[in-house]
Design a protein around this nucleic acid. Structure first.
Lengths: 214, 214
DNA sequence: TCAAATAGGGACAAGGTTGTCACTTTTGCG
DNA sequence: CGCAAAAGTGACAACCTTGTCCCTATTTGA
Protein backbone atom coordinates (compact mmCIF):
# COMPACT_ATOMS: atom_id res chain seq x y z
CA UNK A 1 0.00 0.00 0.00
CA UNK A 2 3.04 2.19 0.30
CA UNK A 3 3.15 3.11 -3.37
CA UNK A 4 0.31 3.44 -5.89
CA UNK A 5 -0.07 7.18 -5.60
CA UNK A 6 0.40 9.36 -8.66
CA UNK A 7 3.85 10.71 -7.80
CA UNK A 8 6.22 10.30 -10.71
CA UNK A 9 9.25 8.13 -10.18
CA UNK A 10 12.36 9.03 -12.13
CA UNK A 11 15.57 7.04 -12.60
CA UNK A 12 18.91 8.58 -13.43
CA UNK A 13 21.72 6.30 -14.57
CA UNK A 14 25.04 8.11 -14.61
CA UNK A 15 28.40 7.01 -13.30
CA UNK A 16 29.95 10.40 -12.55
CA UNK A 17 28.91 11.38 -9.02
CA UNK A 18 28.90 15.10 -9.57
CA UNK A 19 27.01 14.91 -12.83
CA UNK A 20 24.55 12.49 -11.29
CA UNK A 21 23.87 14.91 -8.48
CA UNK A 22 23.51 17.78 -10.93
CA UNK A 23 21.04 15.82 -13.04
CA UNK A 24 19.05 14.98 -9.93
CA UNK A 25 18.85 18.64 -9.06
CA UNK A 26 17.84 19.63 -12.57
CA UNK A 27 15.12 17.01 -12.52
CA UNK A 28 13.85 18.11 -9.15
CA UNK A 29 13.72 21.69 -10.37
CA UNK A 30 11.80 20.65 -13.47
CA UNK A 31 9.43 18.21 -11.75
CA UNK A 32 9.03 19.27 -8.14
CA UNK A 33 6.58 16.51 -7.33
CA UNK A 34 8.84 13.68 -8.38
CA UNK A 35 10.87 11.14 -6.51
CA UNK A 36 14.25 10.86 -8.14
CA UNK A 37 16.27 7.65 -7.95
CA UNK A 38 19.87 7.65 -9.04
CA UNK A 39 22.41 4.93 -9.59
CA UNK A 40 25.86 4.49 -11.08
CA UNK A 41 26.03 0.98 -12.46
CA UNK A 42 24.19 -1.20 -14.92
CA UNK A 43 23.47 -3.95 -12.42
CA UNK A 44 22.06 -1.53 -9.92
CA UNK A 45 20.01 0.18 -12.62
CA UNK A 46 18.47 -3.10 -13.73
CA UNK A 47 17.74 -3.93 -10.12
CA UNK A 48 15.88 -0.65 -9.71
CA UNK A 49 13.99 -1.12 -12.96
CA UNK A 50 12.75 -4.45 -11.69
CA UNK A 51 11.47 -2.97 -8.43
CA UNK A 52 10.05 0.42 -9.37
CA UNK A 53 7.68 1.45 -12.18
CA UNK A 54 9.57 4.48 -13.50
CA UNK A 55 7.87 7.11 -15.63
CA UNK A 56 11.13 8.62 -16.87
CA UNK A 57 14.62 7.20 -17.26
CA UNK A 58 17.74 9.24 -17.93
CA UNK A 59 20.69 7.31 -19.33
CA UNK A 60 24.35 8.09 -19.73
CA UNK A 61 25.74 5.34 -21.97
CA UNK A 62 29.26 5.62 -20.52
CA UNK A 63 28.97 3.21 -17.62
CA UNK A 64 31.66 1.20 -15.84
CA UNK A 65 32.32 -2.19 -17.43
CA UNK A 66 31.30 -0.76 -20.78
CA UNK A 67 33.68 1.00 -23.13
CA UNK A 68 32.36 4.52 -23.78
CA UNK A 69 34.22 4.57 -27.08
CA UNK A 70 32.63 1.41 -28.37
CA UNK A 71 29.44 2.30 -30.23
CA UNK A 72 28.39 -1.27 -29.63
CA UNK A 73 28.75 -1.09 -25.86
CA UNK A 74 26.94 2.23 -25.71
CA UNK A 75 23.97 0.95 -27.65
CA UNK A 76 23.89 -2.19 -25.54
CA UNK A 77 23.48 -0.10 -22.41
CA UNK A 78 20.71 1.99 -23.92
CA UNK A 79 18.92 -0.94 -25.49
CA UNK A 80 18.96 -3.04 -22.35
CA UNK A 81 17.54 -0.26 -20.22
CA UNK A 82 14.89 0.72 -22.75
CA UNK A 83 13.76 -2.87 -23.09
CA UNK A 84 13.37 -3.29 -19.35
CA UNK A 85 11.24 -0.16 -18.99
CA UNK A 86 8.90 -0.16 -21.98
CA UNK A 87 6.36 2.23 -20.49
CA UNK A 88 8.85 4.90 -19.50
CA UNK A 89 10.05 7.95 -21.40
CA UNK A 90 13.79 7.71 -22.09
CA UNK A 91 16.34 10.50 -22.32
CA UNK A 92 19.95 9.82 -23.29
CA UNK A 93 22.47 12.31 -21.97
CA UNK A 94 25.91 11.77 -23.40
CA UNK A 95 29.34 13.33 -23.26
CA UNK A 96 30.19 12.39 -26.84
CA UNK A 97 27.16 12.80 -29.03
CA UNK A 98 26.74 11.92 -32.68
CA UNK A 99 24.00 12.30 -35.24
CA UNK A 100 24.27 8.60 -36.02
CA UNK A 101 23.82 7.53 -32.45
CA UNK A 102 20.70 9.67 -32.14
CA UNK A 103 19.25 7.92 -35.19
CA UNK A 104 19.95 4.56 -33.62
CA UNK A 105 18.41 5.67 -30.34
CA UNK A 106 15.32 7.00 -32.02
CA UNK A 107 14.54 3.72 -33.71
CA UNK A 108 14.50 2.02 -30.34
CA UNK A 109 12.08 4.53 -28.80
CA UNK A 110 14.33 7.02 -27.07
CA UNK A 111 12.60 10.41 -26.77
CA UNK A 112 15.45 12.71 -25.84
CA UNK A 113 19.09 12.86 -26.91
CA UNK A 114 21.08 15.60 -25.21
CA UNK A 115 24.76 16.43 -25.39
CA UNK A 116 26.23 17.14 -21.97
CA UNK A 117 27.91 20.32 -23.06
CA UNK A 118 24.68 21.71 -24.44
CA UNK A 119 22.75 20.99 -21.25
CA UNK A 120 22.44 24.21 -19.32
CA UNK A 121 21.08 24.63 -15.79
CA UNK A 122 17.34 25.16 -15.86
CA UNK A 123 16.87 23.66 -19.30
CA UNK A 124 15.35 20.39 -18.20
CA UNK A 125 11.81 21.69 -18.12
CA UNK A 126 12.14 22.91 -21.70
CA UNK A 127 13.40 19.51 -22.77
CA UNK A 128 10.48 17.78 -21.11
CA UNK A 129 8.02 20.21 -22.67
CA UNK A 130 9.39 19.57 -26.11
CA UNK A 131 9.18 15.86 -25.62
CA UNK A 132 5.56 16.05 -24.57
CA UNK A 133 4.79 18.43 -27.44
CA UNK A 134 6.73 16.95 -30.34
CA UNK A 135 7.45 13.49 -29.03
CA UNK A 136 11.20 14.01 -29.04
CA UNK A 137 13.95 16.51 -28.25
CA UNK A 138 17.51 16.71 -29.50
CA UNK A 139 20.09 19.05 -28.00
CA UNK A 140 23.34 19.06 -29.89
CA UNK A 141 23.77 22.79 -30.35
CA UNK A 142 27.32 23.54 -29.27
CA UNK A 143 26.87 27.25 -28.77
CA UNK A 144 29.54 27.40 -26.06
CA UNK A 145 28.90 30.58 -24.12
CA UNK A 146 31.96 32.75 -24.35
CA UNK A 147 31.49 34.82 -21.25
CA UNK A 148 33.65 33.67 -18.36
CA UNK A 149 31.85 33.23 -15.06
CA UNK A 150 32.89 34.39 -11.62
CA UNK A 151 31.61 32.93 -8.37
CA UNK A 152 31.99 34.49 -4.94
CA UNK A 153 31.41 32.38 -1.89
CA UNK A 154 30.00 35.23 0.15
CA UNK A 155 27.05 35.82 -2.18
CA UNK A 156 23.65 34.21 -2.06
CA UNK A 157 22.36 32.57 -5.27
CA UNK A 158 20.18 35.54 -6.16
CA UNK A 159 23.02 37.94 -5.69
CA UNK A 160 25.24 35.72 -7.83
CA UNK A 161 22.72 35.68 -10.61
CA UNK A 162 22.13 39.41 -10.63
CA UNK A 163 25.84 40.06 -10.62
CA UNK A 164 26.38 37.61 -13.48
CA UNK A 165 23.81 39.42 -15.61
CA UNK A 166 25.29 42.77 -14.79
CA UNK A 167 28.79 41.67 -15.70
CA UNK A 168 27.61 40.59 -19.11
CA UNK A 169 26.05 43.98 -19.74
CA UNK A 170 27.06 45.14 -23.21
CA UNK A 171 28.60 48.59 -23.45
CA UNK A 172 26.00 51.29 -23.99
CA UNK A 173 23.27 49.53 -22.07
CA UNK A 174 22.26 51.27 -18.87
CA UNK A 175 22.10 49.37 -15.61
CA UNK A 176 18.47 50.25 -15.29
CA UNK A 177 17.66 48.28 -18.41
CA UNK A 178 19.38 45.26 -16.90
CA UNK A 179 17.33 45.67 -13.74
CA UNK A 180 14.20 45.63 -15.86
CA UNK A 181 15.30 42.50 -17.70
CA UNK A 182 16.18 40.82 -14.44
CA UNK A 183 12.90 41.76 -12.89
CA UNK A 184 11.04 40.19 -15.74
CA UNK A 185 13.32 37.18 -15.92
CA UNK A 186 12.84 36.17 -12.29
CA UNK A 187 9.44 37.79 -11.92
CA UNK A 188 10.30 40.23 -9.18
CA UNK A 189 10.42 43.99 -8.95
CA UNK A 190 13.09 45.70 -11.00
CA UNK A 191 13.80 47.74 -7.88
CA UNK A 192 14.43 44.52 -5.97
CA UNK A 193 16.89 43.38 -8.59
CA UNK A 194 18.64 46.70 -8.13
CA UNK A 195 18.72 46.12 -4.40
CA UNK A 196 20.30 42.71 -4.93
CA UNK A 197 23.00 44.18 -7.10
CA UNK A 198 23.81 46.75 -4.48
CA UNK A 199 23.87 44.23 -1.67
CA UNK A 200 26.13 42.02 -3.72
CA UNK A 201 28.56 44.86 -4.30
CA UNK A 202 28.46 45.82 -0.64
CA UNK A 203 29.31 42.27 0.40
CA UNK A 204 32.18 42.07 -2.04
CA UNK A 205 33.51 45.40 -0.85
CA UNK A 206 33.41 44.33 2.76
CA UNK A 207 35.21 41.05 2.03
CA UNK A 208 37.69 42.85 -0.17
CA UNK A 209 36.81 41.02 -3.38
CA UNK A 210 35.55 43.62 -5.78
CA UNK A 211 36.29 42.57 -9.34
CA UNK A 212 37.63 44.86 -12.02
CA UNK A 213 34.19 45.40 -13.51
CA UNK A 214 32.74 47.08 -10.48
CA UNK B 1 44.50 48.63 -6.10
CA UNK B 2 41.48 46.44 -6.49
CA UNK B 3 43.37 43.19 -6.23
CA UNK B 4 46.58 42.41 -4.34
CA UNK B 5 44.93 40.91 -1.30
CA UNK B 6 45.63 37.30 -0.38
CA UNK B 7 42.39 35.79 -1.66
CA UNK B 8 43.07 32.81 -3.88
CA UNK B 9 41.85 32.96 -7.43
CA UNK B 10 40.86 29.68 -9.03
CA UNK B 11 40.14 28.88 -12.66
CA UNK B 12 37.98 25.99 -13.81
CA UNK B 13 38.07 25.01 -17.47
CA UNK B 14 35.28 22.60 -18.31
CA UNK B 15 32.88 22.63 -21.23
CA UNK B 16 29.93 20.83 -19.66
CA UNK B 17 27.79 23.43 -17.92
CA UNK B 18 26.48 21.19 -15.18
CA UNK B 19 29.86 19.71 -14.39
CA UNK B 20 31.41 23.15 -14.41
CA UNK B 21 28.88 24.36 -11.90
CA UNK B 22 29.42 21.28 -9.76
CA UNK B 23 33.17 21.78 -9.80
CA UNK B 24 32.71 25.41 -8.79
CA UNK B 25 30.61 24.32 -5.85
CA UNK B 26 33.10 21.68 -4.79
CA UNK B 27 35.88 24.23 -4.93
CA UNK B 28 33.91 26.77 -2.95
CA UNK B 29 33.20 24.15 -0.33
CA UNK B 30 36.87 23.20 -0.13
CA UNK B 31 38.25 26.74 -0.21
CA UNK B 32 35.63 29.11 1.19
CA UNK B 33 37.84 32.16 0.84
CA UNK B 34 38.44 31.75 -2.86
CA UNK B 35 37.14 33.50 -5.93
CA UNK B 36 36.26 30.91 -8.53
CA UNK B 37 36.38 31.73 -12.23
CA UNK B 38 34.91 29.30 -14.71
CA UNK B 39 34.97 29.09 -18.47
CA UNK B 40 34.08 26.65 -21.22
CA UNK B 41 36.47 27.27 -24.07
CA UNK B 42 40.17 27.33 -24.71
CA UNK B 43 40.21 30.87 -26.06
CA UNK B 44 38.31 32.20 -23.08
CA UNK B 45 40.56 30.26 -20.72
CA UNK B 46 43.71 31.74 -22.25
CA UNK B 47 42.14 35.17 -22.04
CA UNK B 48 41.50 34.68 -18.33
CA UNK B 49 45.00 33.34 -17.74
CA UNK B 50 46.41 36.47 -19.26
CA UNK B 51 44.36 38.75 -17.02
CA UNK B 52 44.32 37.01 -13.65
CA UNK B 53 47.13 35.47 -11.59
CA UNK B 54 45.50 32.15 -10.69
CA UNK B 55 46.75 30.03 -7.83
CA UNK B 56 44.91 26.90 -8.96
CA UNK B 57 43.71 25.75 -12.36
CA UNK B 58 41.36 22.84 -12.97
CA UNK B 59 41.38 21.42 -16.49
CA UNK B 60 39.09 19.08 -18.37
CA UNK B 61 40.95 18.17 -21.55
CA UNK B 62 37.75 17.53 -23.51
CA UNK B 63 37.08 21.01 -24.85
CA UNK B 64 35.19 22.13 -27.95
CA UNK B 65 37.39 22.31 -31.07
CA UNK B 66 39.57 19.57 -29.63
CA UNK B 67 38.88 15.88 -30.13
CA UNK B 68 38.52 14.26 -26.70
CA UNK B 69 39.56 10.94 -28.21
CA UNK B 70 42.80 12.23 -29.62
CA UNK B 71 45.53 11.85 -27.06
CA UNK B 72 47.37 14.52 -28.95
CA UNK B 73 44.60 17.10 -28.69
CA UNK B 74 44.10 16.37 -25.00
CA UNK B 75 47.74 16.89 -24.20
CA UNK B 76 47.82 20.04 -26.27
CA UNK B 77 45.06 21.54 -24.15
CA UNK B 78 46.78 20.61 -20.91
CA UNK B 79 50.22 21.69 -22.06
CA UNK B 80 49.06 25.05 -23.35
CA UNK B 81 47.26 25.90 -20.14
CA UNK B 82 50.09 24.72 -17.90
CA UNK B 83 52.62 26.75 -19.86
CA UNK B 84 50.57 29.92 -19.54
CA UNK B 85 50.20 29.59 -15.78
CA UNK B 86 53.58 28.42 -14.53
CA UNK B 87 53.05 29.48 -10.93
CA UNK B 88 49.69 27.79 -10.49
CA UNK B 89 48.85 24.34 -9.19
CA UNK B 90 47.17 22.25 -11.89
CA UNK B 91 44.54 19.59 -11.54
CA UNK B 92 43.31 17.58 -14.50
CA UNK B 93 39.80 16.18 -14.19
CA UNK B 94 38.91 13.84 -16.99
CA UNK B 95 36.04 11.66 -18.09
CA UNK B 96 38.30 9.07 -19.68
CA UNK B 97 41.39 8.59 -17.58
CA UNK B 98 44.43 6.48 -18.31
CA UNK B 99 47.60 5.63 -16.46
CA UNK B 100 49.62 6.72 -19.47
CA UNK B 101 48.02 10.14 -19.63
CA UNK B 102 48.75 10.72 -15.96
CA UNK B 103 52.41 9.94 -16.60
CA UNK B 104 52.48 12.46 -19.40
CA UNK B 105 50.74 15.06 -17.26
CA UNK B 106 53.12 14.54 -14.38
CA UNK B 107 56.17 15.22 -16.48
CA UNK B 108 54.75 18.61 -17.37
CA UNK B 109 54.06 19.59 -13.78
CA UNK B 110 50.43 18.66 -13.25
CA UNK B 111 49.77 17.99 -9.55
CA UNK B 112 46.38 16.27 -9.64
CA UNK B 113 44.84 13.77 -12.02
CA UNK B 114 41.30 12.79 -11.12
CA UNK B 115 38.82 10.61 -12.97
CA UNK B 116 35.36 12.14 -13.07
CA UNK B 117 33.63 9.02 -11.92
CA UNK B 118 35.88 8.75 -8.90
CA UNK B 119 35.25 12.34 -7.83
CA UNK B 120 32.71 12.34 -5.06
CA UNK B 121 31.02 15.37 -3.51
CA UNK B 122 33.08 16.74 -0.65
CA UNK B 123 36.31 15.11 -1.78
CA UNK B 124 37.97 18.22 -3.10
CA UNK B 125 39.46 19.23 0.21
CA UNK B 126 41.07 15.80 0.55
CA UNK B 127 42.55 16.13 -2.92
CA UNK B 128 43.99 19.53 -2.11
CA UNK B 129 45.39 18.27 1.16
CA UNK B 130 47.14 15.41 -0.53
CA UNK B 131 48.61 17.69 -3.13
CA UNK B 132 50.01 20.00 -0.50
CA UNK B 133 51.28 17.03 1.53
CA UNK B 134 52.69 14.73 -1.13
CA UNK B 135 52.97 17.08 -4.06
CA UNK B 136 50.48 15.16 -6.16
CA UNK B 137 47.18 13.28 -6.03
CA UNK B 138 45.76 10.66 -8.37
CA UNK B 139 42.18 9.48 -8.20
CA UNK B 140 41.44 6.60 -10.50
CA UNK B 141 39.82 4.25 -8.01
CA UNK B 142 36.63 3.07 -9.67
CA UNK B 143 34.93 1.84 -6.53
CA UNK B 144 31.45 2.59 -7.94
CA UNK B 145 29.15 2.74 -4.96
CA UNK B 146 26.50 0.10 -5.38
CA UNK B 147 23.79 1.64 -3.25
CA UNK B 148 21.10 3.36 -5.28
CA UNK B 149 20.22 6.84 -4.11
CA UNK B 150 16.79 8.39 -3.60
CA UNK B 151 16.09 12.09 -3.55
CA UNK B 152 12.89 13.67 -2.29
CA UNK B 153 12.14 17.26 -3.21
CA UNK B 154 10.39 17.98 0.06
CA UNK B 155 13.47 17.34 2.19
CA UNK B 156 16.14 19.80 3.19
CA UNK B 157 19.77 18.87 2.46
CA UNK B 158 20.43 17.79 6.02
CA UNK B 159 17.37 15.60 6.03
CA UNK B 160 18.44 14.10 2.71
CA UNK B 161 21.85 13.29 4.03
CA UNK B 162 20.64 11.70 7.22
CA UNK B 163 18.11 9.65 5.31
CA UNK B 164 20.76 8.51 2.85
CA UNK B 165 22.99 7.26 5.64
CA UNK B 166 20.11 5.51 7.32
CA UNK B 167 19.07 3.73 4.14
CA UNK B 168 22.55 2.33 3.75
CA UNK B 169 22.46 0.94 7.26
CA UNK B 170 23.70 -2.66 7.19
CA UNK B 171 21.39 -5.22 8.77
CA UNK B 172 22.12 -5.71 12.46
CA UNK B 173 23.26 -2.18 13.08
CA UNK B 174 20.98 -0.20 15.34
CA UNK B 175 19.72 3.19 14.29
CA UNK B 176 21.34 4.67 17.34
CA UNK B 177 24.77 3.74 16.06
CA UNK B 178 24.01 5.54 12.81
CA UNK B 179 22.94 8.60 14.76
CA UNK B 180 26.28 8.58 16.54
CA UNK B 181 28.20 8.25 13.27
CA UNK B 182 26.16 11.04 11.76
CA UNK B 183 26.67 13.26 14.75
CA UNK B 184 30.39 12.83 14.48
CA UNK B 185 30.42 13.14 10.72
CA UNK B 186 28.68 16.50 10.63
CA UNK B 187 29.78 17.57 14.08
CA UNK B 188 26.37 17.97 15.64
CA UNK B 189 24.55 16.22 18.45
CA UNK B 190 23.65 12.60 17.81
CA UNK B 191 20.25 13.50 19.20
CA UNK B 192 19.91 16.18 16.54
CA UNK B 193 20.73 13.70 13.83
CA UNK B 194 17.98 11.54 15.25
CA UNK B 195 15.62 14.50 15.10
CA UNK B 196 16.48 15.05 11.44
CA UNK B 197 15.73 11.47 10.59
CA UNK B 198 12.41 11.70 12.27
CA UNK B 199 11.47 14.95 10.65
CA UNK B 200 12.43 13.53 7.29
CA UNK B 201 10.18 10.54 7.80
CA UNK B 202 7.35 12.77 8.98
CA UNK B 203 7.62 14.91 5.87
CA UNK B 204 7.62 11.91 3.59
CA UNK B 205 4.62 10.49 5.39
CA UNK B 206 2.65 13.68 5.01
CA UNK B 207 3.44 13.96 1.31
CA UNK B 208 2.67 10.29 0.81
CA UNK B 209 6.15 9.28 -0.32
CA UNK B 210 7.42 6.83 2.20
CA UNK B 211 9.87 4.43 0.58
CA UNK B 212 9.89 0.70 1.15
CA UNK B 213 12.70 0.94 3.67
CA UNK B 214 10.73 2.97 6.18
C1' DT C 1 21.79 73.50 -15.21
C1' DC C 2 18.46 70.34 -13.93
C1' DA C 3 16.74 65.79 -14.32
C1' DA C 4 17.91 61.20 -14.68
C1' DA C 5 20.91 57.66 -13.48
C1' DT C 6 24.08 55.59 -10.28
C1' DA C 7 25.98 54.59 -5.71
C1' DG C 8 25.37 53.59 -0.97
C1' DG C 9 22.57 52.62 2.83
C1' DG C 10 18.65 50.96 6.85
C1' DA C 11 14.81 48.33 7.98
C1' DC C 12 11.44 44.56 7.75
C1' DA C 13 8.13 40.55 7.16
C1' DA C 14 7.80 35.90 5.57
C1' DG C 15 9.64 31.65 5.12
C1' DG C 16 13.13 27.93 5.27
C1' DT C 17 17.20 25.55 7.61
C1' DT C 18 19.87 24.28 11.52
C1' DG C 19 20.57 22.57 15.87
C1' DT C 20 18.44 21.84 20.57
C1' DC C 21 15.31 20.51 24.40
C1' DA C 22 11.52 18.15 26.45
C1' DC C 23 7.69 14.94 26.22
C1' DT C 24 4.69 10.95 24.72
C1' DT C 25 3.79 6.55 22.50
C1' DT C 26 5.09 2.25 20.72
C1' DT C 27 7.94 -1.78 20.47
C1' DG C 28 10.80 -5.65 21.71
C1' DC C 29 11.73 -9.20 24.63
C1' DG C 30 13.27 -11.40 29.00
C1' DC D 1 3.55 -8.88 32.26
C1' DG D 2 6.61 -5.00 32.63
C1' DC D 3 10.27 -2.09 31.49
C1' DA D 4 13.89 -0.20 28.70
C1' DA D 5 15.07 0.88 24.01
C1' DA D 6 13.37 2.80 20.03
C1' DA D 7 10.29 5.63 17.51
C1' DG D 8 7.23 9.69 16.88
C1' DT D 9 5.91 14.85 18.06
C1' DG D 10 5.80 19.79 19.49
C1' DA D 11 8.14 23.83 20.21
C1' DC D 12 11.94 27.16 19.78
C1' DA D 13 15.97 30.39 19.07
C1' DA D 14 19.39 31.78 15.68
C1' DC D 15 20.31 32.50 11.23
C1' DC D 16 20.04 33.19 6.23
C1' DT D 17 17.43 34.22 1.99
C1' DT D 18 13.92 36.61 -0.54
C1' DG D 19 11.44 40.39 -1.93
C1' DT D 20 9.88 45.02 -0.53
C1' DC D 21 9.87 49.95 0.79
C1' DC D 22 12.18 54.21 1.66
C1' DC D 23 16.02 57.48 2.27
C1' DT D 24 20.20 60.34 0.84
C1' DA D 25 24.42 61.68 -1.78
C1' DT D 26 27.05 61.91 -6.07
C1' DT D 27 27.64 61.60 -11.18
C1' DT D 28 26.27 62.10 -15.73
C1' DG D 29 24.46 64.00 -19.84
C1' DA D 30 21.27 66.46 -22.90
Amino acid sequence: MTKSNSIQEILIVEDQHLMRLALVQEMQAALPLSIVHATATMTSALEQLRRVPFALVVIDPGLPDYDPRSENDRMTVIKTIVERSPTAIHIVITGSDSEKEWEACRTMGVAGYIAKNSLKPGTMSTILERISDHGYCVGIMHETSVAPEIYHTALSPREQEVLAWMMQRPAGVSRKEIYDQLGEHMSIDAASAERYYKRAKAKLLKSGQLPDSL
